[in-house]
């Protein structure tokens, strides 16, 4: 299952701490989004076995004062 994780941070996050996702073999893609009203933001696209795993993995990444949205990618 693929999940798109959006992270909105009031200040820039260095490389968005992608290491733990990369080491776990679940990170498919990552990138920064063009800054908008609520600060700088980025995304991770991850491939995990369940929604719970997506939540658990993201929960462990230090993201102070960030707004995180986890959305499942539709399968066509």
């Amino acid at each position: 299952m693929r999940f798109m994780v959006f992270v909105r941070s009031p200040k820039p996050l260095a490389a968005l701490h992608r290491d733990s996702l990369l080491r776990a073999g679940v990170l498919l893609d990552a990138g920064d989004l063009v800054p908008e009203a609520y600060g700088v933001s980025g995304y991770w696209l991850i491939d995990v076995r369940s929604r719970e795993e997506a939540v658990e993995r993201v929960r462990r990444i230090p993201l102070p004062a960030c707004v995180v949205e986890i959305r499942e990618v539709a399968v066509v």
Partner: peptide, 10 residues
């Protein structure tokens, strides 16, 4: 239980 499953796999 689903969370435990996920944590176990991880």
């Amino acid at each position: 239980r689903r969370t435990i499953d996920a944590v176990w796999r991880m």
